[in-house]
Write a protein that binds this DNA or RNA. Structure first.
Lengths: 226, 226
DNA sequence: CTGTAAAGATAGTGATACTATCTTAATAAA
DNA sequence: TTTATTAAGATAGTATCACTATCTTTACAG
């Protein structure tokens, strides 16, 4: 069985759909490599074009600018993660177990999903940790939001919020707790690696400790034993 | 009594101390206005120079580049907030009350401190919400950290971590909970304003609800009634 | 055989992120 | 009073960035 997972992206995210051509796929694949390696600030379309043996103008036919490409990558990641969450929590009845599964998916190193040929999820995960928030921390956030560019992120947040309410229907802040889990899964990881004194995981640098922290945070808030 | 609060900044944050000259103070004052207005991405030394009637080269004598200036502003803000925390929690014995005070200081709109003449803390607070994380979410974070550029942030985090342990000496993640409170005080505020569906405060857009969320989060985790 | 569209090739523009140098102004030491 | 020092203004210059425009080639579909 040779399954390909394809994620349908909002058309406003690009000028020309990168999934529909070889050049488009190369843009995605190599932008991930380049941003992972040098960071988003140092990333330019010129360098990317050089890497894939195309031209700057060629890349501008797919994406308006590099910020739009970043939004595309984050949107792709959150869509893929929602798919993972749906898949992995399928057939699990207990919402507490489901929520633990989600925390694990958020906070644990992602393995490359071979069914998505040109996206290396493990690199993309690292990009999201360091650059993900920059997609929305801008002056343009409201306009971009009107174009539904952050829908995958908001969808995932809504799913987690629902799961939280399933664990405790009386909890008052399901959406805020959901966005807290998502962001902290990444921030605590970044801190652990780069600014360890901001965490309690400096010694071992072990992701499973982040998972335990988040579980403790969530289930204490929900007054649920886990 | 005419008290001036001056914050001693790490010398690596600048090339020439902006607090020691009129031009330096203008750079700080107007960079805050400009970043507040247009965001950090659109901010350039050229525009700033034009605003204050100086030259680009003049500003480069104070700061290596605009990223360093952002780090300076964030460091200044965290130092000032640590001072606020120390001041406001002085003479309070109960660590729970202290912690509530800190959450309030973190999550509530800051008023301009008239004792700091050329820094508008309320604008700076807004800048920190949107741009603050960009100071450290870079490829250079480790080098910058070695130069102790993030010390004020880490100091504040350590203070909050201590306070958390005072509330519950058995709690296992004081530092991670501290950094979570700090970041979420800002993120929930940003979400509330710009992406309200990620929070439970969309209706009223009231900061006091963020405070209640954070208090619930913290004191549930610490198993302390508040 | 022709029309269409993607992509390559090339050029150009204005802004950005600096660096360099020279001059002037202010102040402080000799 | 002269001289040395330093900050700041004035001006210029460069490489890169972030695009935009146009023209040609290639591919493939009708």
């Amino acid at each position: 069985m040779d399954i390909h997972v394809q994620i349908k992206m909002n058309e406003k995210l690009f000028l020309r759909d990168p999934e529909q051509s070889e050049l488009g796929k190369k843009i995605i694949q190599n932008s991930i490599l380049l941003i992972y390696k040098n960071g988003f600030e140092a990333f330019t379309f010129k360098k990317l074009a050089l890497d894939i043996g195309s031209t700057e103008a060629g890349i501008y036919r797919y994406f308006e600018n590099k910020h739009r490409l970043l939004i595309y990558l984050t949107a792709w990641y959150w869509s893929w993660l929602e798919y993972q969450v749906t898949f992995q929590t399928n057939n699990i009845q207990d919402p507490v177990v489901k929520l633990k599964m989600i925390i694990d998916l958020l906070a644990t190193t992602v393995e490359d999903d071979i069914r998505t040929s040109y996206v290396d999820e493990s690199l993309l995960h690292q990009i999201i940790i360091t650059e993900g928030t920059k997609a929305y921390l801008t002056k343009r956030v409201s306009e971009d939001n009107k174009d539904h560019l952050f829908k995958p992120y908001k969808d995932l947040c809504a799913i987690i919020g629902k799961m939280i309410l399933e664990c405790n229907p009386h909890y008052k802040y399901p959406k805020s707790l959901a966005s807290t889990i998502i962001e902290m899964a990444h921030f605590q990881n970044f801190f652990m690696t780069n600014l360890p004194s901001l965490t309690d995981f400096g010694e071992n640098k072990d992701e499973s400790e982040i998972v335990r922290f988040l579980e403790d945070l969530v289930f204490s808030s929900l007054h649920v034993v886990h």
